[in-house]
């Protein structure tokens, strides 16, 4: 369980994340939604110790992210931020292998090799293992990054807008994969999502944020309500039931 307790992050005077307390990762997929500047990515970054906290505490399975050595946390939680532009030219095989760094420190054992092969197979990357990342399409590259994070074999996986820059088909592919990973391997996946309908269809729980605070945290059916979404996004959102899924209509 990821326990967030009274966490605050300020940039200058402005609190981007304002006294947030939250329990994350109790079930398969949790999505964090909210408008730009709601503090979603900042919160995720603090959980992943990529940003220091200005107040409060975050623990992952009881380990304080501020005091636990990075090498220990790296076997507990994996994170992937959005827009991963690599200057380094690496092959898919190399990139996924570096997901095992927390265990192997560069010297791969047979356990590491198995995990790498599994992650590559899981994301259907076998045809591309020897290709360089800069020779792949956006969707293939995103899959390679996700394979790296899965190879890290952590209980918790944090992904910041994993569908960013993906076309519809690739976006659906990635969400199906994440759903399967959560169901098959018991991973707890926390996503920052822009598309409320993807969040609705694929998540078990949704955290709705606005102005650095959590407005509502509950099962997705509970958050996918016209009143709740309208309040979060300042936009009339008509939520209807389509094929048993709750879908928000907000285009006009």
């Amino acid at each position: 369980m990821i326990s967030i307790s009274q966490v605050t992050k300020r940039y200058g005077r402005q609190a981007v994340v304002d006294d947030v307390s939250l329990e994350l990762g109790g079930c398969g997929i949790t999505s964090i939604i909210g408008p730009n500047g709601a503090g979603k990515s900042t919160l995720l970054s603090m959980v992943a110790r990529l940003l220091p906290l200005d107040g409060g505490t975050i623990t992952i399975d009881g380990l304080d992210v501020r005091t636990t050595p990075g090498s220990v946390l790296a076997t507990k939680v994996a994170v992937l931020r959005q827009d991963n532009h690599l200057a380094a030219r690496l092959t898919v095989q190399d990139l996924v292998s570096f997901g095992r760094y927390p265990y192997s420190k560069g010297r791969l054992t047979s356990v590491d090799r198995d995990a790498i092969a599994r992650a590559i197979g899981y994301l259907d990357l076998e045809p591309f293992v020897d290709r360089f990342l800069d020779e792949l399409s956006g969707g293939q590259r995103q899959r390679a990054f996700i394979a790296m994070v899965l190879a890290q074999d952590t209980d918790y996986v944090l992904l910041d807008e994993p569908l960013n820059n993906l076309d519809l088909r690739h976006a659906v592919d990635i969400m199906k994969l994440l759903r399967a990973a959560a169901d098959d391997t018991g991973k707890r996946i926390v996503l920052v999502m822009h598309d409320i309908n993807f969040a609705s269809v694929y998540s078990d729980e949704i955290v709705a944020m606005r102005d650095g605070r959590v407005v509502l945290h509950g099962p997705s059916s509970e958050v996918m309500q016209s009143e709740v979404l309208g309040l979060i996004y300042d936009l009339p959102i008509d939520v209807r039931e389509v094929d048993g899924e709750r879908i928000g209509y907000y285009y006009r």
Partner: peptide, 9 residues
């Protein structure tokens, strides 16, 4: 830097 931190270095 983010990848580095994520991998525990």
């Amino acid at each position: 830097q983010e990848f580095t931190t994520n991998l525990g270095l």
